[in-house]
């Protein structure tokens, strides 16, 4: 029977289109980018061999370290909020609202599918301070606090970015973790209730351990996205004021397309790729250890 499934013509015919497109548009460019790290210049101005110059520059470029620091701060904070608040939301759906949670779930999920650009422009307006106050400043003024120039300083702009990205993704993590909680058999929860476990103890000893796999899955998915943050920052603050909200992705974009330095841009992209790789491997290893122990 094996010969039927080993139909060579079918394998070639069905696999080739995908493999060809994937190889030409993803794998070859990755290798090409690796090659570019040894050059300086752009397709318009021509390339010049630069040896290890780009790497030396990378390690001494303070803008890279600031961008990396921004990326790390952003990724850790947003991932934490996404998973923790998403868990809270999932508990709410599963234990408080139960069957009547469809409407709330559907509503809270809606921002997830909205275009990032639209959401960013909306948040610019909500946190606006000039020429007139936006919604948040109006609220602050009405309760007696002064208005804040949110997007005018790095620290407050960072706060706005985090709030916005948590706002638009929280419904997604709520659903993701909720689907994990649904997989916990009702009998287990019922029988531990009969044994006298309730509230926090039920959560601590039954629900939390049984939902760890989905928490790990959410964590991986979240960090994989937050490390690559680009759209929301680009559309909301453009990296500013100054470079204060510039993640690595945006620094790479600027280096390549504003300063036409493809070689150095590729070097920054390589750093970004290495970080994604290390983080993914690290999470996989630590999650495996947790399951076996």
């Amino acid at each position: 029977m094996k010969s039927v499934l080993g139909d060579r013509k079918a394998i070639v015919l069905l696999l080739t289109p995908a493999l060809l497109v994937y190889t030409l548009i993803m794998l070859v460019p990755v290798l090409w980018s690796l090659g570019l790290t040894f050059f300086e210049g752009s397709p318009l101005g021509g390339f010049e061999f630069a040896g290890f110059d780009n790497f030396i520059r990378l390690f001494s470029d303070s803008a890279v370290w600031e961008a990396l620091w921004f990326t790390i701060r952003y990724a850790i904070l947003v991932t934490l909020f996404q998973v923790v608040l998403g868990y809270g939301l999932a508990l709410l759906y599963n234990f408080v609202l139960r069957k009547s949670s469809v409407l709330v779930r559907t509503l809270v999920f809606f921002p997830v599918v909205l275009p990032t650009v639209a959401v960013s422009l909306l948040y610019q307006k909500i946190f606006q301070s000039a020429p007139t106050d936006g919604l948040v400043n109006e609220l602050l003024v009405n309760v007696g606090l002064g208005s804040v120039d949110w997007l005018g300083a790095g620290t407050t702009a960072f706060v706005v970015i985090v709030i916005m990205d948590v706002w638009r993704s929280i419904g997604f993590y709520g659903i993701l973790i909720f689907s994990g909680l649904l997989d916990i058999p009702d009998e287990i929860i019922e029988s531990s209730r009969l044994d006298g476990a309730s509230g926090f103890r039920l959560f601590r000893h039954i629900v939390l351990p049984m939902s760890l796999p989905i928490v790990f899955a959410s964590f991986i998915f979240s960090i994989n996205g937050t490390i690559k943050v680009f759209d929301s920052v680009f559309a909301l603050t453009g990296g500013g004021p100054g470079d204060s909200t510039t993640p690595l992705t945006l620094y790479m974009y600027r280096t390549a397309f504003q300063y036409s330095d493809y070689g150095y841009g590729s070097t920054i992209a390589l750093l970004l790729t290495m970080i994604c790789l290390v983080v993914t491997l690290f999470i996989f290893r630590s999650s495996r250890r947790d399951i076996t122990s």
């Binding site: 499934l5 139909d7 794998l27 992705t249 493809y262 841009g265 590729s266 920054i268 992209a269």
Partner: peptide
Amino acid sequence: VLVFKGRGTILLLFLAGIMIPGQMIVLPL
């Protein structure tokens, strides 16, 4: 569904693409 040598490797090759950030391919493209 089909059976041939190296299919596990090819699947893994595709999987690796999930990690690659757009920035790593955009300049050559």
